[in-house]
Lab assay of single mutants.
Amino acid sequence: MDVFMKGLSKAKEGVVAAAEKTKQGVAEAAGKTKEGVLYVGSKTKEGVVHGVATVAEKTKEQVTNVGGAVVTGVTAVAQKTVEGAGSIAAATGFVKKDQLGKNEEGAPQEGILEDMPVDPDNEAYEMPSEEGYQDYEPEA
């Protein structure tokens, strides 16, 4: 019985440690998101679009440190934060509304985080759909 109880105690310690790591990862992701939003706020009209992409990228980098179902929630929060940063930029006159959601080359930025393969159960990952990809044929 002692062996059984000791095993359960060790398992509990492992769960607590994993929860603490997840909590730490979420806190880091939130900190990076805040950094990115402050970065966007300090940019001029020309830099705002690039700044919004930076927020998304920093958040995406930190999301990889967070495991399990938390990833889905962090990704949703990050996307809403990026959308909010863009709205703030438009409201303050840093950028025109028609410039939001495009990178410096004018290509749409939507789907940055949505296409990231995420499995809350950590069982399997699927690649994003290939609808947006084109076949590449090298020139002879």
Rank of each mutant, 00 (worst) to 15 (best):
L113T: 06
A140F: 15
N103L: 07
G93A: 00
T92L: 09
P108T: 08
S129T: 08
E104F: 11
G31I: 15
E35N: 11
G84H: 15
G51F: 01
E46A: 15
T44M: 13
K23V: 10
G73H: 10
L113V: 03
V63K: 00
D98N: 09
Q62Y: 03
N122V: 12
T72S: 01
A27E: 01
P128N: 14
Y125L: 10
E137D: 07
T72H: 00
H50I: 12
E130M: 06
D121W: 04
G73C: 13
L8H: 00
V82N: 05
I88G: 02
G106F: 04
V37T: 00
N103P: 03
Y136Q: 13
A89F: 06
A107M: 05
K34R: 13
G86W: 05
K23N: 04
L113Y: 08
E123P: 02
K80Y: 06
N65G: 10
D115E: 10
T81L: 03
M116S: 08
M127Q: 06
M127V: 15
V16M: 12
G25V: 01
S42E: 09
E110R: 04
G47Y: 11
H50G: 09
H50N: 14
Q79I: 09
E126F: 11
M1C: 00
N103Y: 06
K43T: 06
L8N: 00
E57H: 05
N103S: 07
T81F: 01
K97V: 13
Y136F: 13
T92M: 11
E57D: 05
K34W: 01
G25C: 15
G25N: 06
E46K: 13
I88P: 02
V82K: 14
V66P: 01
S129Q: 05
K80P: 02
A11K: 00
A29I: 14
Y39G: 01
T59A: 14
D119F: 08
E13A: 11
E139Q: 09
E114N: 07
G14Q: 14
V49R: 15
E123D: 02
A30D: 00
G51S: 15
E130Q: 12
E61W: 02
P128R: 12
K32T: 04
A30P: 01
V77S: 02
E104C: 00
V15G: 03
A90K: 10
V52R: 02
A89K: 08
V48Y: 04
V3N: 09
A89M: 15
P108M: 07
T81G: 06
G73S: 06
G93H: 10
A107E: 12
G47Q: 00
E139M: 13
G86V: 02
A53M: 15
Q24C: 15
D2R: 07
K58S: 08
V77Y: 08
K32H: 05
A107V: 04
D115I: 04
F4W: 07
T33Y: 04
G68Q: 03
T81V: 12
G86N: 15
I112N: 11
A29D: 00
I112D: 06
A30F: 03
Q109A: 12
G67D: 02
I112M: 10
A76P: 02
